[in-house]
Design a protein around this nucleic acid. Structure first.
Length: 526
RNA sequence: GGCCCCUUCGUCUAGUUAGGCCUAGGACAUCGGGUUUUCAUCCCGGUAACAGGGGUUCAAAUCCCCUAGGGGUCACCA
């Protein structure tokens, strides 16, 4: 039998990082088995702008390169793929259960049921349905129906059952059905509830493996019972642990972003993001854009491979040594049996580490393409990027080397993209490397004269010039190089100085040196 | 509170199914050293864990029991 897995998001308008991990596991299991991956929109209770609500979700899949064989946009043999359009199927299932007596119309007022539930809770007893409506005669039921008395449809739980499932990650899990209330499967307006619609859909879409977060574990006995009542085969189950917030065991949630901002584990990631998002005109404090959302990673310049590797290694491992997985390797190696049982916290440091690895695997051109958009949005490059600006960018990227961990990091090399001095200037570094020793200014002035006379402005020649200068003046590299760097880049450290000078160009180096020396002459100003 | 799940270094994890190869391995983070004009990279090294208590056994991270802690879920949400 071909494996068919599904991911069934409700249209919320964003893609949660934990949900993405669940989707990835489903996708990997399908691909690993040469099966199909289905995307289904669980919108039984939503009535909002669908495009707006599912767009970001589909975008996240597309960005990560996770394709779906059936679902929105592409359709498929088991469509439609929106629950809101599958009402006929649900109604038929409901009729079947009603006819077979495995479900019943419950006319008990909701307030009454609620009161019973509360009473049971107060008495510290498990709550089970009163089933008062089961005592109604056929005539009474018809009268109620004719009178339009509101009622829901409940599944009749077989209370004598002990129900055991064999879960791919939890093993055997057993429930005592005598402790379960009869679940509502259709609202008083006749519309189906999640547990019921899901079962109908999983069955009619021939889903073989339901891989979902463990918060659904308690829904499983109900779903098994519905499958059985309908005479359907049950899919195989795999309840994977939810993704926890860094350094905690709590499910990561978009409602706790303020708390995460203050957590030491998360701090670095937020800082990096804020720095970048601020420069490209996005609101870094918006709840919709945080490391809880997949979109955030794209917006700050993660690569899909980095995010994917991070996700697959939270809650799953191959063995005791393999950390790096390309998408192809994940497909090859993924298995449900090696999913971890306990919740795994999202680890920002490892995310970053995987990201640095995968960005370094990219071709020069891919890195260039990734960075250009950030420079444009940051206002440092025009929209059609002029050829020479592209060349410059490519050279800055090469120079930056592994300092470029995110595409968005290119924005921290602003000094190469502006003609004037509109870039951050590290005053502390300036004070330490330039102002601290009086003679440094003289050295820089002498050096500037030589740089002004330089006829060839290339790294190699500049290296020669600078080293010769050191010899002439009997100085050490540390006496001049760091100072020169601060003067022309505003930074206390960075990539190779000679390459930096070459890329900056003679004109900018000289003018920035001039203004730095002016500044040094009157340090009290500013 | 009921039901269910989980518990190995700071973090992600290997080892638990078939007890001995585990004086518990790896990775990330961290600390120290080396390379480098600085930073980053890279190389070398260090710190650091079987939740607790009882059993069973020649032998337990691994099996059994109890306790504790953490979490999920208890809707006419999904």
């Amino acid at each position: 039998m071909t494996v068919r897995t599904r991911f069934a998001p409700s249209p919320t308008g964003y893609m949660h990082i934990g949900g993405m991990r669940t989707a990835l596991f489903n996708w990997l299991w399908a691909r690993h088995n040469n099966g199909s991956f289905i995307l289904r929109i669980d919108d039984t209770d939503q009535q909002r702008n669908m495009q707006e609500a599912i767009g970001p979700i589909l975008d996240a899949f597309r960005w990560l390169g996770l394709d779906w064989d059936e679902g929105p946009e592409c359709g498929g043999d088991c469509g439609p793929y929106y629950q809101s359009q599958r009402r006929k199927l649900y109604d038929a299932g409901l009729q079947q259960l009603l006819a077979s007596g495995q479900a019943y119309r419950d006319f008990e007022p909701a307030a009454e049921t609620q009161a019973q539930r509360e009473a049971a809770e107060r008495a510290q007893q498990p709550f089970v349905s009163s089933r008062a409506s089961l005592q109604l005669s056929a005539e009474q039921i018809q009268e109620n129906l004719d009178a339009g008395t509101p009622h829901v449809i409940r599944l009749l739980i077989p209370r004598e059952r002990q129900l055991t499932i064999t879960d791919h990650v939890r093993g055997e899990v057993t429930w005592d059905c005598s402790l379960m209330p009869d679940p509502v499967i259709a609202r008083s307006d006749g519309s189906p509830l999640y547990n019921f619609a899901t079962v109908i859909d999983d069955s009619s879409m021939q889903i073989t493996h339901v891989i979902r977060a463990e918060e659904h574990l308690s829904n499983t006995p109900i779903q098994v019972l519905i499958h059985e009542a309908l005479g359907q085969q049950t899919p195989e189950w795999a309840h994977i642990p939810y993704v926890a917030a860094p350094g905690s065991k709590e499910k990561i949630s978009k409602r706790k972003i303020d708390k995460y901002r203050k957590s030491p584990q998360f701090a670095r990631l937020f800082e990096m993001g804020d720095e970048i998002l601020g420069q490209i005109g996005l609101d870094a404090t918006a709840d919709a854009l945080s490391p809880v959302m997949v979109a955030w990673y794209e917006q700050v310049g993660f690569t899909p491979a980095g995010v994917l590797n991070g996700l697959v290694r939270t809650g799953w491992s191959l063995d005791d040594r393999t950390e790096l997985f390309s998408l192809a390797e994940m497909i090859e190696q993924f298995s449900l049996s090696r999913v971890i049982r306990s919740p795994a916290g999202l680890d920002p440091d490892r995310m970053l580490n995987f990201q640095s690895h995968w960005i370094s695997e990219l071709s020069d051109d891919a890195r260039l393409q990734g960075c250009l958009g950030f420079l444009q949005r940051g206002g440092l490059l025009q929209d059609p990027v002029p050829a020479e600006a592209q060349q410059l960018t490519a050279r800055v990227i090469t120079l930056a080397g592994d300092r470029l961990r995110l595409f968005g990091d290119i924005l921290s090399f602003r000094e190469f993209f502006v003609a004037g001095e509109d870039y951050p200037f590290d005053e502390k570094a300036f004070a330490k490397r330039v102002l601290k020793k009086a003679e440094t200014k003289e050295h820089l002035a002498a050096l500037q004269a030589q740089l002004a006379d330089a006829s060839t402005w290339q790294a190699e020649a500049l290296s020669g010039l600078l080293n010769t200068f050191l010899e002439q003046q009997s100085l050490r590299a540390g006496d001049v190089f760091p100072a020169l760097r601060v003067c022309v880049t505003g930074k206390g450290q960075g990539p190779d100085l000679f390459e930096t000078l070459e890329l900056l160009g003679q004109e900018r180096v000289l003018s920035r040196l001039t203004s730095s020396l002016q500044k040094a002459a009157k340090p009290e100003v500013g």
